[in-house]
């Protein structure tokens, strides 16, 4: 199995995609799928119970496929549009995942596999949903940032790009990008602690 695209190859593939090279689409989709996977893991890492619970995979797979289907229908006019839309989809899936794992009606507590299975696969324990609620809030808060700041977060956080690459895609200087990144983080933190 091939390695996933590194973020510096992403820019290259996106360029080809915009030029109409259909093969590039697979690469780009894969990159986005991989980002979603990493971010999900990050999010669920704080929850050993969820992490160890076999259904995480299934739920994530579902999210992955939905993400890919959504992205497949996009006809990006340029790299920036594509990355922005992809980040939006990723954010939506993450919010969805966080909601699903959050009690009391989340997957973690309300589980309906077949009875013979139940004995083996009940959630290992109930857990405090507060942290997942916070993740939901963070993703939602990112969605509400001023556009310029949100774009910076989209590229650096959701897409995992370096500051250099992000600045290049947005057509701004690295300093401007850093400024937006700082200001976005301060705003997000203020919201959380408020």
């Amino acid at each position: 199995m091939q390695e996933f695209l590194a973020s510096n190859q992403l820019a290259e593939s996106l360029k080809r995609l915009v030029q109409g090279d259909a093969n590039a689409r697979d690469d780009v989709l894969e990159y986005s799928g991989e980002r979603l996977r990493q971010l999900t893991r990050k999010m669920l890492n704080d929850f050993p119970v969820v992490r160890r619970w076999s259904e995480t995979d299934d739920v994530l797979q579902n999210a992955l496929l939905r993400l890919l289907n959504a992205l497949q229908t996009l006809q990006p006019a340029n790299e920036r549009d594509f990355l922005g839309l992809a980040a939006l989809q990723i954010r939506r899936e993450l919010i969805d995942l966080a909601r699903r794992f959050k009690g009391p009606h989340g997957l973690a507590t309300n589980h309906d596999s077949n009875p013979a299975e139940d004995r083996l696969h009940q959630p290992l324990t109930t857990f405090d949903p507060a942290d997942l609620a916070q993740w939901t809030e963070i993703h939602e808060a990112i969605g509400e940032l001023p556009d310029a700041e949100r774009e910076a977060v989209d590229l650096i956080f959701y897409q995992g790009l370096s500051q250099d690459d992000s600045a290049g895609i947005l057509g701004v200087s690295v300093r401007t990008l850093q400024r937006r990144w700082h200001s976005a983080l301060v705003r997000l933190d203020d919201r959380r602690t408020r």
Partner: peptide, 15 residues
């Protein structure tokens, strides 16, 4: 950054 798990760098991140 800690919460989001982002290590900031101008170079590409290690996936």
């Amino acid at each position: 950054e800690g919460r989001l798990g982002v290590t900031v760098s101008t170079r590409p991140q290690d996936a």
